[in-house]
Design a protein around this nucleic acid. Structure first.
Lengths: 215, 215
DNA sequence: GCGCCAATAGCATAAACGGGTGATTTCAAA
DNA sequence: TTTGAAATCACCCGTTTATGCTATTGGCGC
């Protein structure tokens, strides 16, 4: 019977790696399945060592931890990847998450919390350093930041634009608002002027990309 | 000089609220600015008490914590809202985040961590219970899930579709790939068949919404 | 009251588009 | 080897769009 969580460490700094292995070996409930300075032998190591949790550094020779993560998840989907790195720029955080990382800790995290995080991530949680989490949350909040309608579209023009974004023809839009097709044409001319485009498709693209209309 | 973090608690359960106030009062570095069972008097309380951090329950009589959060942030944008609730369904989590919450803890979090979270959130972090964080991360990873869109478009058809999404006319697309306009037309007919649409705009909309092309 | 502007509408013309039909070539799978 | 899907091109015909010009009406502000 095997209740131990099998952990692998990928970390190119030797001192850190050895510190981690020492820490893991000293923790009941965990077992160190391996510790390596790079991810070059991932395809053989993963099937052989069958880790439950991987502590992944980002900056390593050869393959970065961010690149290695999807490879690892492809080899062993149930394995949880916990990034453990000094980087806290949004790019790296989001890349890691998109590539399948389930947790993201900065290296300055105290040992006790790293251990706790290993259990957390294995239990289905996503431990994250608070400052990293803030960057993730900003992503959800920033839609508000997106520039509002400063093209000075009138209310009616917005109506028409919404019609275009629904994929309607001039005729359908005319029917929708009980106005003539010529009027629709007229509004659309003004919309094109204001948005600086000259086709329906461009107008629709601009409307969506700049969120001039709610989809 | 005032280095204390001013904290307000909104929590309708009296025992919990009193437990929290006791905990906060006993913690150096924090000062309890108020504790209330609902958010009805938010507009007067916030300016009067000037909190730095608010512990916010969700399920309260009158206004829910989720509804109260944007009001509070409007009154005092610098104030950090830390949700403290039993709910861990995605809807509530995302609503809270969109409305301006900066942290999200489940009530089963031990007191010591709640205290730590208050300092974290005040320092600009976003403490989150690991299981909550996992739900947030899933949001970023799920684009993969949104990919049952197999319309069997050929490579060339995808090229053409990308051209449409760039807002190009048939003629421009023809020039881009050094083929005739009639060929473009022909490809587009097939694209329309496969996507089940019948206009450029609809095709572009479908392509974007279902991420058939990378924008 | 006067002027401005959004909303409405019409007409005209040229370009772009959508749909029908059909054809040739190439390449890979059956 | 046959079959079939992709990619290429062509012609036709009617519809939709893009653009230019013009014009009336009803509100709003000054």
């Amino acid at each position: 019977m095997e209740d131990l969580i099998r952990v692998i460490v990928f970390e190119d700094n030797r001192d850190l790696r050895e510190g981690m292995t020492f820490l893991l070996q000293a923790t009941p409930g965990l077992t160190l399945a391996g510790a390596f300075s790079d991810c070059r032998d991932l395809p053989t190591q993963i099937p052989a060592l069958q880790p439950d949790v991987v502590l992944m550094d980002i900056d390593m020779p050869g393959i970065t931890g961010i690149e290695a993560t999807p490879l690892l998840k492809a080899l062993r989907p149930a394995c949880q990847v916990l990034m453990l790195t000094v980087f806290e720029d949004e790019d790296k955080i989001f890349q890691a998450i998109r590539n399948g990382a389930s947790g993201y800790l900065l290296k300055r995290t105290p040992p006790g919390e790293i251990i706790k995080a290993i259990f957390d991530v294995h239990r289905g949680g996503s431990p994250m350093t608070a400052s990293v989490a803030r960057k993730v949350l900003h992503f959800f909040q920033e839609p508000a930041k997106t520039a509002p309608n400063d093209y000075q579209l009138s209310a009616r023009e917005l109506d028409i634009l919404k019609g275009l974004v629904k994929g309607f023809s001039y005729k359908l839009i005319a029917d929708e608002f009980f106005i003539s097709v010529d009027t629709v044409r007229s509004h659309i001319r003004h919309i094109y002027d204001k948005l600086q485009v000259n086709s329906k498709t461009e107008a629709v693209l601009k409307a969506i990309r700049e969120k001039l209309v709610l989809e």
